[in-house]
Simulated scan of single mutants.
Amino acid sequence: MTPAERRGLWLGFAGVAIFALTLPMTRLAVGTPQAPLMSGVFVALGRAAVAAVFSALFLLVTRAPWPRASEWWPLVLTSAGVVFGFPLFTSVAMRYVEAVHASVIVGVLPLATALVGALLHRQRPSHGFWACALFGSALVVAFALLRSGPGEGLHLHVADMLLLAAMGCAAVGYGYGARLSQRMRAEHVICWALVIAWPLTLPLALWTRPAAALPASAWWAFGYVALFSMWIGFFAWYRGLALGGTVRVSQVQLVQPFLSMMFAVPLLGEHLDLVTLGFALAVIATVFAGRRMPVRAAPRPAASVSPALEPR
């Protein structure tokens, strides 16, 4: 392993550690159905609006060049995934599920990220990869059904479906963001993604802002997800992916569910039982196995011109 790859792994771990606090802090900001605090929409859009201000200043200070024409559409997709989709779905869901529960649901995110990365690079995942992806998804659904609530029958809670949607959004945002990090500064990727979303996030955040006084803990939690989860964490994460490679560095996501659970217990007073821990271990083992399955390059189409006439 080269020094750059080793540095990439450490930066990737730093990003994952920052992201691991996102679910507990979001829960702390939105409250519970019995004691609601901030709305999930405000937490999601407000944190993006705040981070966009820091992003604009950072782009000015570092004299960031304007993205090239070919980079705008990937930036829009990155923004749709990690600025709008994942924060919005998780923030709304976290009022209705505990952070420990949510950590299991999003545990298959590394596999989803690997799948998006394979599609972006026009690769073909093996049958083993697909088997692991299906089994991991089945474990997540089984856990959600098992925890659907006594006397309510087996069904997926709306919050669980929102978390699954958030996982898909994050995978798309990570995949396109990592791809952009190969062509532009990793720090600039998330900054531009936030800045281009600001005309939407700012007015919507102001419209949904809390009208009543809230405890300081909710505002501290909001500050964390705005400054760290939405901004600084991506500095480390995208830089790590660029230095160490997406396939290698994304492996460190395997520890994120356990870190989230460890943070949720003291911060929120949640309980970690053996069933939840068992499902988390099973999901992570499936993800680990899936990430080791071969992913083949797709066959190149036959050339329509003779090799002598092909552009060089």
Rank of each mutant, 00 (worst) to 15 (best):
R124K: 07
M184N: 02
V287Q: 06
R179L: 12
A178Q: 06
W198G: 03
L28W: 13
S39P: 13
L88G: 12
T2H: 10
M25W: 08
T286E: 00
G233Q: 06
S148T: 01
G278S: 12
R147F: 09
L309F: 13
L60F: 09
V82S: 15
A298M: 07
V249R: 11
A48R: 12
T286L: 08
A170V: 05
V295Q: 06
V92T: 06
M1N: 09
L162K: 03
F54N: 09
V283M: 12
G233L: 11
P65W: 08
V41P: 07
V30A: 10
A80L: 08
P74F: 01
H101K: 03
L164V: 05
C191N: 15
R7I: 06
P36Y: 00
A93H: 06
V195E: 08
P74L: 05
G40Q: 00
V305D: 11
C132F: 01
F19R: 03
V97E: 06
W10P: 11
A178P: 04
G81I: 00
L111R: 13
T286Y: 01
A4L: 05
L88A: 04
A112Y: 10
D160P: 08
Q123N: 13
P65E: 08
R47T: 02
T208E: 07
P24A: 03
L37D: 02
A17S: 13
W207R: 11
L200M: 05
V247A: 08
A280I: 05
V50D: 01
A216C: 03
Q123T: 07
L154R: 15
M161Y: 02
Q34M: 14
A112N: 09
L115H: 08
R183C: 00
A211V: 10
A52D: 03
A118D: 15
L28T: 09
T246Y: 11
V106D: 14
M38G: 14
S91K: 05
E270L: 15
S103K: 09
A193T: 05
A4V: 13
T22L: 10
F42L: 10
M230D: 10
F19Q: 13
A51T: 01
V30S: 10
V255P: 02
T201R: 06
V195S: 04
T201C: 06
F263D: 04
A51E: 14
V116W: 00
V104M: 12
A44W: 00
V61M: 05
V53N: 07
E98F: 08
C132L: 07
V158D: 03
M38R: 03
T62C: 09
W130Q: 07
V275M: 12
P3T: 09
G175M: 12
L77H: 06
T32E: 12
P125S: 15
V76T: 12
M167Q: 06
L37T: 05
A226R: 01
H121D: 13
T113I: 11
A48K: 10
V92K: 05
A48M: 02
M25K: 15
T246P: 12
A131K: 10
V255N: 00
L281R: 13
F13T: 10
V100A: 09
F263N: 05
L28Y: 14
R183A: 12
G233W: 04
P199L: 08
V275I: 12
A112R: 06
G168W: 00
A20S: 15
S126D: 00
E98T: 15
Y224H: 09
P33N: 13
L88P: 09
H271E: 11
